Amino acid sequence: MACNKDKDMVEATVVDTGDITNEGCGYVLQLQDNALLQPEYLPSAYQHGGLKVKVKYTHTGVQDTCKFGSVVYDLVSIQDIKKNIDR
């Protein structure tokens, strides 16, 4: 039986919402159901808008807003992330 290391990971797309010091929220993750998550920290290798990734995360219990629309984001802590070469 093969071990699937990715079984707890979900597919997402990195979205560049703009400079966090200006009017954006920095980089957020858009899940397949269009939910948006704001990572506490996103490694620079993944800071590319449109990048397809697989991610495992935990909710921090904190919600945040910014000027990118009127959305309240769940702040998440990334446990594991990698480029999604399947997509």
Rank of each mutant, 00 (worst) to 15 (best):
L75I: 14
L29E: 01
K67L: 13
P43G: 07
C25F: 04
G61A: 03
E11L: 11
L31Y: 07
K56V: 02
T60V: 02
E40P: 00
V55D: 01
D74Q: 11
P39M: 05
D19L: 14
D74A: 12
Q79V: 15
P39K: 02
V15D: 02
A2S: 13
T17P: 01
K52D: 02
G61C: 04
Y27Q: 02
Y46H: 05
K83N: 08
H59Y: 10
N4E: 11
V14E: 02
Q47R: 10
D16T: 08
S77R: 14
L75H: 02
S77H: 10
Y73S: 03
L31T: 10
E11Y: 12
D74I: 07
N4I: 12
K7W: 11
V53P: 02
D74R: 11
K5P: 11
G26R: 01
Q38S: 09
S44P: 03
N34I: 08
L29S: 01
Q63Y: 10
N22V: 14
S77E: 09
S44F: 07
D74K: 09
T60R: 03
L37K: 05
L31C: 07
S77C: 10
V14T: 08
N22F: 13
V55C: 00
P43I: 10
V53T: 03
F68E: 04
T58R: 10
D8G: 12
K82V: 06
G24T: 06
Q79P: 03
T17A: 05
